[in-house]
Amino acid sequence: MTILMTFIQKAIGQSISILFGATGEIITEKSGNLNLGIPGIMYMGGIAGLMAAFFYERASAAPIGFIGLLLSFAATLIVSALGGLLFCFLTVTLHANQNVVGLSLTTFGIGFGNFFGGSISKLAGGVGQISVATTASAYRADIPVLSKIPVIGDLLFSYGFLTYLSIIVALVIGRFLMHTRKGLNLRSVGEDPATADAAGINVTRYKYIATTVGAAIAGLGGLYFVMEYLGGTWTNNGFGDRGWLAIALVILALWKPLNAIWGSLLFGSLFILYIYTPGLTRATQELFKMLPYVITIVVLVITSKRDKLENQPPSSLGESYYREDR
């Protein structure tokens, strides 16, 4: 029982970063932009939040958790949004190839994270010495009272606010996409920008806003990782390939944020399953780590075979749009 409880808690801990990343990528892809820079942007968002908290706590004699939280939250949003903005400028305005820009951005973002992670480590006095304890504890604060309920409290209310925020954001984006005019317009931009354009929708603006907002949301995944998961420190490449899992999750979720919620739980569970499976060697562990990708491929195979059009990626995904082209 306790081991199951720990497993669930740990799985949720793994899934939140992925969920933020996937939600951000979904809204981005709904505009027709395939932003493969999301994994890098998550690194950028993470380090930006950490740095803001770090410098705040260094400068202040008696740092207040809530202020550290606000500052780091804002820093993450700004820096990761800038990553999305850069992607848009290159692909939408300059019509550069989305795959190339995305992959470069990921390489850049990981380097950016590691570089500044290293720099502030030095300031802090060595690798692993960064600590933003005050801010991190604000991120880790669970829900008072409710978390004290036996079992249910541990299971549902023992997490920091980013966990709940990730689910709320996914629900809000899901509702936005399906039940609002702007959501409808955005979907049409991703399906067929020429049609959206002819209907009087400002394609460029929608692509910019969706991609920038998407990047900001994804950046929160990085913030969650450094603050709640790691407890306010940095290890180089520590975030690993969670960003790619987020992109795989978009496919598994069939571009629906609601599906991403349970999908991220599934991925989170599979991600740590090897720890809880007895009798694995190093080699078989690696096989277990492949599971999320295997499932994604299986879903891809199933959905690509005679499935409903609604479950396919946005038709114009990855293509740039010029009005006078044909």
Binding site: R181, L184, N185, G200
Partner: peptide, 11 residues
């Protein structure tokens, strides 16, 4: 038909 039209945000 309503694509791109202004109106109540909630559909």
């Amino acid at each position: 038909i309503i694509l791109g039209l202004p109106g109540n945000e909630s559909l």
